[in-house]
Design a binder for these strands. Structure first.
Lengths: 266, 266
DNA sequence: CAGTGGTCTAGACCACCAT
DNA sequence: TGGTGGTCTAGACCACTGA
């Protein structure tokens, strides 16, 4: 019962370990030793019966494992053992100006819109001034693993056709124009930050996940012309990604394996 | 009811938004407009009654907000509005060899132990060879926000007193000796990666949080002497931290404010 | 002690997928 | 159509905090 009763009958003063945490531990061991990537676990009702707990309690344990990227749950299908997370390079060498390196990005669209207040402050533009807002997806192994919104003030890319500037019509050719102009600028440096977030409706849709999905939010400030010329806010699926920074010559500590099995499937 | 009924009476084919997600949206708006950092929300039973949902459903919404770092829940106390996350520098300039910059670290202990298999592989040592294992806490505003385990092979720090080498006795003077030796080495570069994890018992205890707490796992590979000389695995509290990389001259996009209010308060 | 969040239960219904 | 995970409920008890 996850109880605190010691063998001799005295009450231990330690910590009454929650059932769901104990369950998680048991499942971790099982996953490590008895299951392979892509295998289907018994369904939740069977599992909860087998462990003698309520389904809600079992689900609490599965929630943890999913947060850790060890499980993938698919409605109507079952609970699968996830492949190890992929390493996603976000280092200088791999990117430079967004889209420089031969990364796999898929442009969604672009329009001219007022940016969030925090972004405007960083860019040094008035809070209500429209800026080029480019949205694109980071693809890996044929999967959308991240969604990025790039904010670029008009003044930074003056040669973008006038038809596009100030227009709020979503268009992907505008996106290409903005990115081309950006790449001509000399980049002084970048600074990045990472934090945990949850996907709101918009991002969730782009990543093909339900709202509330945990994501790693990567904010990049591109420095050029003596100031911050652009800001990118990228949300990466926390279940699938390990963001890698710095010297690109080095590879991972975590086991390589071949990703894109469970994750890619269907 | 978070229903999908359209105004004209037809059934919309869109998505039946879950109650807990709708609740979260409502609460986010309330937090943004009507609450200040440190304020106490009504208790869960009142809130769930007020919104006409079961307590479990309300808790699902609060779980999301806690994951986003907007709320702090304290058993026996209540649910408080959290301060904005702190920016935690993990850039080259701020660190170099661990402990170089005037960061606030608190040494816990050190011993000689076999490292995890993945770490051994990166260091290029046999899986069962003991390495110096230094544990320390990253402090900020008087709070432990991260716990780090640093792995250093004997060969990299040959001048560490022989009493320490190969000894598995936990000791903080050994830690200082290892760190001193490390800082004398010329550092060629570093590579880092960040992913989402949950705190196991050990880390959870160090961070004064319950097991299962979401953390950002930062893995750093220090390159020196033509190879990887040391590996550090740091776990930062995801609710409190935004990890910042790169050029240290630049500050945050996200609002500064004064952290260390709710978070610091006992 | 009373009040708070944390855990757990047993059951219900829904949305989705394969067949 | 039957099986899966996703949502939601109403209620119970526990662990911790502060007065």
């Amino acid at each position: 019962m996850g109880t605190t009763q010691a063998a001799n009958g005295t009450v231990a003063a330690t910590a009454p370990e929650p059932k769901y945490w104990h369950l998680r531990t048991v499942l971790v061991r099982a996953l490590d030793s008895e299951f392979n990537t892509g295998e289907v676990l018994p369904n939740e009702r069977d599992l909860s019966a087998r462990f003698g707990v309520a389904r809600a309690t079992l689900r609490q344990a599965l929630d943890q494992l999913e947060l850790e990227g060890r499980l993938v749950r698919r409605r109507g299908i079952g609970t699968l053992v996830a492949a190890p997370r992929m390493g996603v390079p976000v280092s200088e060498a791999a990117e430079g100006w967004p889209g420089t390196g031969r990364d796999s990005w898929r442009i969604v669209d672009a329009q001219s819109l007022p940016a969030p207040a925090a972004v405007c402050a960083a860019l040094g533009v008035p809070a209500d001034e429209p800026v080029h807002t480019v949205r694109r997806l980071r693809m890996m192994h044929g999967q959308a693993i991240g969604a990025e919104t790039l904010y670029v003030p008009d003044a930074v890319v003056p040669h973008v056709p006038a038809i596009f500037a100030k227009s709020s019509i979503a268009d992907s050719s505008r996106a290409r124009s903005v990115l081309r102009q950006l790449q001509r600028l000399e980049l002084d440096g970048e600074s990045r930050s990472v934090e945990l977030g949850v996907a709101e409706e918009e991002q969730a849709r782009l990543l093909d996940r339900p709202p509330g999905t945990p994501v790693l939010v990567l904010t990049t400030r591109y420095q050029a012309q003596g100031g911050i010329a652009a800001v990118a806010v990228s949300t990466y699926r926390a279940d699938m990604c390990r963001l890698t920074f710095g010297a690109s010559g080095i590879v991972d500590v975590t086991p390589a394996a071949d990703p894109a099995e469970v994750r890619t499937a269907s």
